[in-house]
Design a protein around this nucleic acid. Structure first.
Ligand SMILES: [Mn+2]
Ligand SMILES: [Mn+2]
Ligand SMILES: [Mn+2]
Ligand SMILES: [Mn+2]
Lengths: 218, 218
DNA sequence: ATAAAAGTTTAGACTAATCTAAAAAAAATT
DNA sequence: AATTTTTTTTAGATTAGTCTAAACTTTTAT
């Protein structure tokens, strides 16, 4: 059994490792969790003792199979709760993350299975992020970053990379949400900004930063 | 802001004080929370410093107005969550308490207001316990203990006193749930057991203990 | 009215999670 | 290759919540 804090460390390490594919350094974890490196060192010793990660002094940590499995249950809970908040309670997509940060630590497998059924087994959360199934399996569809999209090819918004409130609110304002159609009309080489048409409406400019944080599919 | 632990102490003290009407002794709190008296003494010092309770050394504690208000928000959350689990997720009434013990500490007023609306502003939880409204107001209907009920007077089950799983499962088994009609046919003076007819079915015997834990109204 | 019993508080210790400052190791620069 | 800079770890402290054992108060029984 992991504590609330240990779960947060494990989830953060899992995300920073990009799903277990690369090792993660002490300072990255500290920056991500707004703690100090010394605190992280203590915690990673604990997590490696419990075999959720492996740890080589001075060279960072890697998530073990056991660690990845547990991290996935936390991600699953986080995303199911976010889906519940939007679909059933009427939250906006920029209001759910902080509440889900708390709800993801509720410990009841019956609860999470019933919630999953109640939501009709969703495969993506309100930000388009995939929801692992009860076995930890993720259904990943292929998606590309809007910034790299071909000009004049009609695409559909399928996820955001950055889930911060200001960004999500900005997207809502310009009419972007999951499932909306979007076509790049012109790429401005000077600053990387794009002229895009959303739902076939009058083209508008979006910044390079925005275009790097919108994921689309055909 | 109270910690998870402080909230549990405050809620327990509130319940033991019967809604703020009597003072509560150190050992009662310790017994209720399965901790030791010394631990309780430390915690009640902290809670009284924060003015959620008043504390007179050796003579127990009393809940302040502020303490009662906060306790009521926790009770509200607990009972709204229990209602959600039963009404929306299909939990049985004996499965919800432990999960609600966790959920009651989730901190988001938006969440609780939206949940309340989603459930259509319920006034009682699955055990018949009243749900305080957002101002902490409790709508208490008058109810009597089945043990004291008049013979041959048709009544309706409106709450249980004891919410333990074994008791709730026993009630389900004999056909008792909230809203069911019940009539006392005979009171056995020897051991206090009652012969009752549930939903006008064949009379059956229930023990004094059971009859003390079922609340009914006309 | 004392003495014994019961209940409560204090003292001292432990674990989890955090910090700052100092030491050590690795990486980058000259 | 040596030195400087950056990163990480270790050492030592702090706070929250818990415990046991000892001391102190209140209550009960003689
Ligand atoms: Mn999120
Ligand atoms: Mn979290
Ligand atoms: Mn309950
Ligand atoms: Mn609780």
């Amino acid at each position: 059994m992991l504590s609330y804090t240990e779960e947060n460390y494990l989830k953060t390490i899992y995300h920073l490792s990009e799903g277990g594919h690369k090792s993660v350094l002490t300072n990255e974890i500290a920056a991500s969790l707004l703690t100090k490196a010394a605190t992280v060192t203590d915690m990673i010793k604990k997590l490696s003792l419990k075999e959720f990660i492996t740890y080589e002094k001075y060279y960072g940590v890697n998530v073990t199979k056991k660690g990845k499995a547990h991290a996935l249950t936390i991600v699953r809970k986080h995303r199911l709760w976010e889906t519940f908040l939007v679909e059933k309670l009427g939250f906006a997509w920029d209001e759910v993350h902080d509440v889900a940060e708390q709800l993801e630590h509720i410990n009841s497998s019956l609860l999470i299975e019933k919630l999953d059924a109640f939501l009709d087994y969703p495969t993506a959360d309100p930000h388009g992020h995939p929801i692992p199934d009860k076995h930890g399996k993720i259904k990943q569809e292929k998606q590309i970053v809007l910034k790299e999209a071909l000009v004049n090819k009609p695409l559909v918004v399928c996820a955001v990379r950055n889930g911060s409130s200001p960004f999500l609110q900005y997207l809502s304002k310009i009419g972007v949400s999951i499932g909306v159609s979007i076509t790049v009309r012109e790429r401005i080489e000077f600053d990387g900004s794009l002229e895009v048409s959303i739902q076939n409406k009058k083209p508008q400019l979006i910044s390079r930063e925005a275009a790097e944080n919108i994921l689309v599919k055909e």
